[in-house]
Structure formats: structure tokens, C-alpha cells
């Protein structure tokens, strides 16, 4: 797998991250090294193997539909960088 600049730019866009030019070059070569190593996984024969997501069998967990105390609004807003009138404040989203 060859990592080109286009791919790095695409990954930055997906990740909502912007690298500086120096970081981008370093990241490109690091990802190249890492993915070349990761490609050894292709040698492993996995035909007929079911992918395993959970280490141990887990089933859906149900509980009674009862009222429980939830976190209070002021508490939830405590760490918000910007807030207004009991809400999170964000930049204008519609022109």
C-alpha cells in the first residue's frame, strides 16, 4: 500500500484534523512504515473465519423502564467552552 499526499489530505478531512506541512510529510512517511508492516497481516489465512467483535459473548442488556435521576443542566454545561442561556453556544451554522 503506497501512501500519497492525496490520501493524507483525505484522512485529514475525515478526521477533522489539519496538519502543518512538516507534520504532513512526517505523518506520510510514518503511515507508510506502519501500513507496510500492517500488510504482513495479508499472509494470514483467514478464509472461513468469522470476524470477532466482542471478546466474550455479550447480549443486549435490558432494565426496567423506571425514572432515574439524570445529570443536571448546569453541571453538563460546566465544562462548555462557550454557553448562553443554558445552552451550548456554537458559531452560526446557517447563512
Amino acid at each position: 500500500m503506497q501512501i500519497g499526499s492525496d490520501l493524507v489530505n483525505y484522512l485529514e478531512a475525515l478526521a477533522r484534523i489539519e496538519l502543518t506541512d512538516t507534520q504532513r510529510e512526517k505523518c506520510k512517511s510514518d503511515l507508510q512504515d506502519i501500513l507496510s508492516y500492517i500488510d504482513t497481516l495479508n499472509e494470514l489465512d483467514t478464509s472461513g473465519v468469522e470476524p470477532l467483535s466482542h471478546s466474550f459473548p455479550v447480549t443486549n442488556v435490558f432494565h426496567e423502564d423506571c425514572v432515574q435521576e439524570s445529570k443536571d443542566r448546569d453541571g453538563l454545561l460546566l465544562n462548555a467552552p462557550f454557553k448562553k442561556d443554558g445552552c451550548f453556544k456554537v458559531p452560526k451554522t446557517v447563512e
Binding site: 484522512l11 484534523i17 506502519i34
Partner: peptide, 21 residues
């Protein structure tokens, strides 16, 4: 974009990008 780019370190960014890939 700016909050994540400024707020996260390079190793974290690298793993996020590898994960996206």
C-alpha cells in the same frame, strides 16, 4: 478542525488518521 488540530498531540492525530484509513 482547529480545536482538534491545536488540542491533540501528534501521536493521537496519527492514530485517529490511521483509524480513519
Amino acid at each position: 478542525i482547529k480545536s482538534r488540530s491545536e488540542g491533540l498531540g501528534m501521536e493521537v492525530k496519527r492514530r485517529i488518521m490511521l483509524g480513519n484509513f
